[in-house]
Amino acid sequence: MDGIDLSDPRAGYLRVADGIRRQIEAGDLSPGDQLPTQRELAAEYGVGTETVKRALEQLRSAQLVVSHQGKGSFVGQGPATASPKSDEFGQFVSELTELRAEVAELRQRLDRIESRGL
C-alpha cells in the first residue's frame, strides 16, 4: 500500500480510505481479502490508528469493507448496484463526515482557548 499524498488538503482518513478504495478498484485487493491490521495500515500510511479507524468506517459505509470483531477487516462485495445517484450520495456522505470532523476539531480548539480564559 502506498502512503498518502501529503499535499492533498482533505482529512487524513479520507485520503487513507481513497488509497484503499483505489487498490480495491484496481483489483489489487479482491472480495474476501483480509486487510492489514489497523496498526499496520497506520504505519504504511504514516497516520494514527484513529485515522485508520475512520477510514475503515468510510469504507464500511460504502460496503467496500466488512469488519469482524477479533478477526479483522476484509474486502467486501461492494454495493449490489452502483448508480450515479449512489456515487453522488457517497460523495455527499464523505463530505458531510469530513465537515463533522472539522467542526469537532474546531470545538475542541475553542474549548481549549476558552479554558485559558482568553
Score class of each variant (00 low, 15 high):
D2K: 09
G3N: 12
G3W: 03
L6Q: 11
L6N: 06
L6T: 12
D8H: 07
D8M: 01
P9W: 00
P9S: 10
R10V: 04
L14P: 00
A17K: 01
D18C: 04
D18A: 08
R21M: 09
R22D: 02
R22L: 11
I24D: 00
E25P: 04
G27P: 01
G27R: 03
D28Q: 14
L29F: 11
L29I: 06
L29M: 12
S30Q: 08
P31A: 03
Q34K: 12
Q34D: 07
Q38M: 09
Q38N: 14
L41G: 04
E44W: 06
G48K: 03
E50G: 09
V52N: 10
V52Q: 05
K53L: 12
L56F: 04
L56Y: 02
E57T: 15
E57P: 02
E57H: 14
Q58C: 12
Q58L: 11
L59Y: 07
L59T: 09
L59W: 01
R60D: 13
S61V: 10
L64F: 08
G70H: 03
F74K: 05
Q77I: 03
P79I: 08
A82H: 01
S83C: 07
S86G: 05
D87L: 15
G90T: 10
Q91F: 09
F92C: 08
F92Y: 12
F92L: 15
L96Y: 05
T97E: 13
T97R: 10
E98N: 09
R100Y: 14
A101V: 02
A101G: 14
E102H: 08
V103A: 08
V103Q: 06
A104G: 08
A104R: 12
L106P: 04
R107F: 11
R107N: 13
R107C: 12
D111M: 12
D111R: 13
D111C: 05
R112H: 09
I113S: 10
E114N: 05
S115W: 06
S115K: 04
L118M: 07
